[in-house]
Design a protein around this nucleic acid. Structure first.
Lengths: 190, 190
DNA sequence: GTCTATAATGTGATAGAC
DNA sequence: GTCTATCACATTATAGAC
């Protein structure tokens, strides 16, 4: 999927608006206005509103997929794997805040093959995270808990960290990484 | 706000649909169809689509507000306060799954005084949670960390627990409470 | 309390001039 | 590459019959 400069401009402006109001509350007229052109002109660069949403979401989804695959080798221990996953979530939160928010809020508005692609990637990602946690429990590095709830505890915070970051943009990724590693892995009790 | 039987039926059906597709993707025709009547008939019971959203969201928001106020007395120690908050989130997750999902996903589609009321309640809630965490750190019951990120770690998971519960409805609230208490307060590392 | 009919507006998208 | 004009349809909501 080749993105011309103008198309990229449209997609990234759309991501900003979708994040603030949601996909279905942003009209093509709203988007055009934000770019200082008329709605009809958008269609010289993109084929539909759906295409914009798919470009935004699938690119971030692919980022997550690529990273979890680099983390998968059996050599690293499971806690180091989790730390690497946390680090990656923070990096994407910081670098692609708008697109990540779209993925979280509007994935269900994808259609047909794009929706399918997204769900395949999400399921594969969660399955791999689940494997890491199982391995950690077997190797006695992690507490023996309900695996699905451990998985959810981690992902629910990591996926929505963009909400916190939007209001705390001056925070360094390093600080976020150190603090979240502690909170998520070691808990908050002294 | 007195709710007749029929109005309650409309509101709770709306909550179910809003949760699945989002407020702006559910038309009055969709809602009417789910109730097996025509869209115009809805207006004999409710004054607008907005009113439905406000009823759904503000009721849950008031539930949270009421609970945090019962928890506030200085007598209880901060870890017990946090446990009580976790328990309350789980109860609302289980008993008002649809409405909670609406609150999380569609609060920004509230308008005027309803939006204002919601934000006031949310800000007050977060401020009280923040106080609990500060107290815990001062009393050396909690680790000395970035307070805002501790707060976010807790709330991000508790607020979205309905996503997990939707797919695991057979789980008992007791089990959820025990596991989440461990994950959130003590972490996952052995 | 529900219906049919309809008003008033907003929507995604296209045609064709420049 | 952007514009004006427009299509075809969906939207929330109201009026008035039954």
């Amino acid at each position: 999927m080749k993105l011309t400069r103008r198309k990229l401009e449209i997609v990234s402006t759309a991501a900003k608006l979708f994040r603030k109001k949601g996909y279905n509350s942003v009209s093509m007229r709203d988007l055009a206005q934000a770019l200082d052109i008329k709605a009809a002109s958008l269609y010289n660069h993109i084929s539909s509103k759906q295409e914009i949403l798919a470009i935004i979401i699938l690119e971030v989804a692919e980022n997550f997929t690529e990273h979890i695959n680099t983390v998968f080798p059996e050599s690293i221990n499971s806690v180091e794997k989790l730390e690497s996953v946390i680090e990656n979530h923070i990096q994407i939160t910081v670098e692609k805040t708008n697109a990540l928010a779209c993925l979280n809020n509007d994935w269900m508005h994808l259609e047909q093959s794009d929706l399918e692609s997204y769900l395949v990637m999400r399921n594969a990602y969660e399955a791999k995270m689940r494997n890491i946690i199982e391995q950690g429990i077997q190797q006695k590095q992690l507490q023996d808990r309900n695996i699905d709830l451990v998985l959810f505890s981690l992902l629910s915070t990591l996926r929505t960290l963009h909400l916190w970051y939007s209001k705390n943009k001056e925070t360094s990724p390093q600080l976020m990484f150190e603090e979240m590693k502690q909170n998520l892995l070691h808990g908050i009790i002294r």
